[in-house]
């Protein structure tokens, strides 16, 4: 499918920092998680995609428009949820969203209709007539999401939409992000520093590190089985005794917290061996499961460390 975002050796040099370093990436429709530590270049990338920041070199296209020559066309078709507070406290969400719909070029009547509809979709019902100064963080995030959707964009850029939310509100927000991508059929690029969230909602993950592309692939590929087995046993000094016994049987074992990670590459039939060893040692076998990758592992692998 036609990519919604395409960058070619995109570089942004602020002099003191190199925010983006020859980034070439294609982002397709659906929900894409943009991952990276603080300073990895996520926010700079979003601002370049909105046509606000001029890249030092390289080029970028959003929905087929060049960021350098057609920033207004891009901003008409893109919704943006900024990371920081951006709501004036002395107007109601309803009035503000109507106003911003008109700022995206919608006529007044259409702006009113869209605002009411979008506020309902994000779950701001009666509160929408109250001044936003009295809103909770969760309600503010919903209002921010509503303004990003009110002009029916073809792509939304969500910068840390779950920031500062309690677990219930975070689940609700992630549910909304998923609905935007799947039910509303709007392409989503969402950043987060909580990788677990992105694993849950995104179809694709783009990992940035130091302004460079670390990896871009489907979320499933990140989460594929690693080819290791995780074993948990109960009993006096259980994990240690189990590890020794397995090692003497010729299996490569590493401790991971309270669990043992077994390399399945060896010639031995592991499941039987685990069962027999646990029985011989008189240990309770709690679980044996396949180990899956986490998105964190991409960072760990890149730095050559394995943190447990």
């Amino acid at each position: 499918m036609e990519p919604v975002v395409r960058t070619e050796s995109l570089t942004k040099d602020y002099g003191v920092v190199l925010a983006l370093d020859a980034l070439t990436v294609e982002i397709g429709p659906g929900i894409t998680g943009l991952v990276g530590a603080n300073g990895a270049g996520k926010s700079t990338l979003l601002k370049i995609l909105l046509g606000l920041v001029t890249p030092t070199s390289g080029r970028a296209e959003v929905l087929g428009h060049d960021v350098a020559t057609e920033p207004l066309a891009i901003r008409a078709a893109v919704g943006y949820l900024p990371e920081h507070d951006c709501l004036p406290p002395d107007v109601s969400a309803s009035d503000f969203i109507v106003h911003l719909a008109m700022m995206s070029g919608l006529p007044r009547v259409a702006a009113r209709e869209r605002a009411a509809e979008v506020l309902r979709h994000v779950g701001l019902a009666e509160e929408r007539y109250r001044l936003m100064g009295g809103y909770s963080t969760g309600m503010k995030q919903k209002a921010k999401l509503a303004q990003a959707l009110v002009h029916d964009p073809r792509l939304v850029l969500l910068d840390e939409p779950t920031n500062g939310l309690d677990p219930a509100a975070r689940d609700e927000m992630l549910g909304l992000v998923q609905r935007i991508g799947e039910d509303f059929k709007i392409a989503v690029i969402v950043t987060s520093h909580l990788l677990g969230e992105l694993e849950r909602v995104s179809n694709h993950v783009v990992v940035l590190d130091g302004g460079q592309l670390l990896r871009a692939s489907a979320t499933d590929e990140f989460l594929n089985a690693t080819g290791a087995l995780l074993v948990e046993v109960l009993g006096e000094d259980g994990p240690n005794r189990m590890a020794h016994a397995l090692q003497s049987a010729g299996v490569s074992v590493t401790a991971r917290g309270a669990l043992l990670a077994l390399d399945t590459a060896g010639p031995v039939e592991l499941h039987d061996l685990i069962r027999d060893t646990a029985a011989d040692l008189g240990l309770g076998l709690v679980r044996v499961q396949a180990d899956h990758h986490r998105i964190e592992d991409v960072f760990a692998d890149a730095r050559g460390v394995r943190h447990d």
Partner: peptide, 18 residues
């Protein structure tokens, strides 16, 4: 100042308005 103080300037700048 209002748009600067509350950050709403970001929302205007992200719209089709120079």
């Amino acid at each position: 100042s209002r748009d600067l103080r509350h950050g709403s300037i970001t929302l205007y700048l992200a719209r089709p308005l120079r």
